[in-house]
Nucleic acid binder design. Sequence first.
RNA 1: GUCCCCAUCGUCUAGUCCGGUCCAGGACACCGGCCUUUCACGCCGGCGACGCCGGUUCAAAUCCGGCUGGGGACGCCA
Length: 464
Amino acid sequence: METVITRFPPSPTGFLHIGGARTALFNWLFARHHGGKFILRIEDTDLVRSTEASVKAILDGMEWLGLNWDEGPYFQTQRFDIYREYAERLVSTGHAYWCECSPEVIESRRKAAMAEGRKPKYEGTCRAKGLGPGSNRVLRFRTPDTGTTVLKDLIKGPILFENSELDDLVLVRGDGVPTYNFAVVIDDITMNVTHVIRGDDHVNNTPRQILIYMALNARLPEFGHLPMIHGEDRSPLSKRHGATSVMEYKELGFLPEALVNCLVRLGWSHGDEEIFSRAELIEKFSLEAVGKSPGIFNMEKLLWLNAHYIKEKQPEDLVPLLRPFLSARGYPDRPDGYLAGAIGTLQARSRTLVEMADAMRFYMVDEVVYDEAASAKFLGADMRNAFDRLTAELESLESFNEEGLEAVFKKVTGELGMKLGKIAQPVRVALTGATVSPGLFEIIGVLGKETVLTRLRRALARME
RNA sequence: GUCCCCAUCGUCUAGUCCGGUCCAGGACACCGGCCUUUCACGCCGGCGACGCCGGUUCAAAUCCGGCUGGGGACGCCA
């Protein structure tokens, strides 16, 4: 089999969104699985809406997800000469002609057709005029009047289109800029793309594109159309469904491996498996296992996956990822080792880095803030004695490890004839300010002797 | 309106190509229980679906037709 070449061609009119990211991911995986090439191409022929900031945002998103490309990014605006050459070829072979119909006329005919319940189509007014190029004239493709165009879709199977349903699409605009349907075909031909994997919304463009390939005598690539991703209400994913930009997920504290895992399972499956490492994805990915029906993006599953990947990581590896969230909260700076220790106690309790950073507060601040209800309930005068004894015992404890701490707590509770549970919550409140936290001995181990004693004494002082 | 696509638990899906092994399996969420110094994690259990109607067949989630529902496209946007 020849080298597989796929591409991801975003238009730089916004951020890299969830749908685009999945398309990119599937193209990337397909190329990697087959040991082929993955090309990044920026489709910026919409001069008005394209921005450089969007290009940057898309590249950032790709990089964060780890979708590296082998060629590009190419920019369509830098390839006008190529398109012009192919346009001339189509004219000289009788596959394209110049049209002088004004956009206004076309538009009003379109509306009229819709109003009458007909499919709006360009009638071919200028087909036989034999016009040459001129200002404001567009170049149109001469679509065959009869016949059937077949799209052999790798995902959906064969789809038939009657050529009579199609009209003479514009290849080059009045200002000389090529349109999407023309530019993609030329790009995919000249970049030797072998597999076009893209969103479902392009199915209806495909017969037109196939006709252009045929007019150019170019070899057809394979096509695979992915079903769309919808929001909870089954409408196309948009802002009102929450975060749509990939980078927003980074800011919400998600790990790229979780998003990738979530995205790949939307439409693709491998038996009953849910969790896939990058290497496993590359090994197992195939278009045959891609489903045909649209899927709904499910935040709960993403959270579960993210929790999984947070648990799986080494605490040290989480430190640099968490730091931005920590400093955003204005916590004092702490050494890596200390942070890693704290993270280790929070991994099983955090679904996102945001949750983790929030839960980190008591590890970071110099003085804990007591939850009022908790302090009223657990830091009463009845605990004075126990805290007194505990403080004294801890003061003389050499190593603050689990065994030593447990021994101390057992000794004190034994002496006072109380259960561990009785003293645990008050100590927890004294150390963290709240009733919910990681295990007591874990916390003490991370906080260290000095801080623990300071916090216990401060709590003791409040017990009047 | 016209053309195109899709249809299994609330959600993601396995099974559908090659009918019987499926009174439909897994995962998320939800509900119980266990573990336990709190909360989580983990473990165990529960709830829950083949859109509808016909046809073919000894037998249909699986094949065929229709209907309904959803989505997409119909731009000098991509």
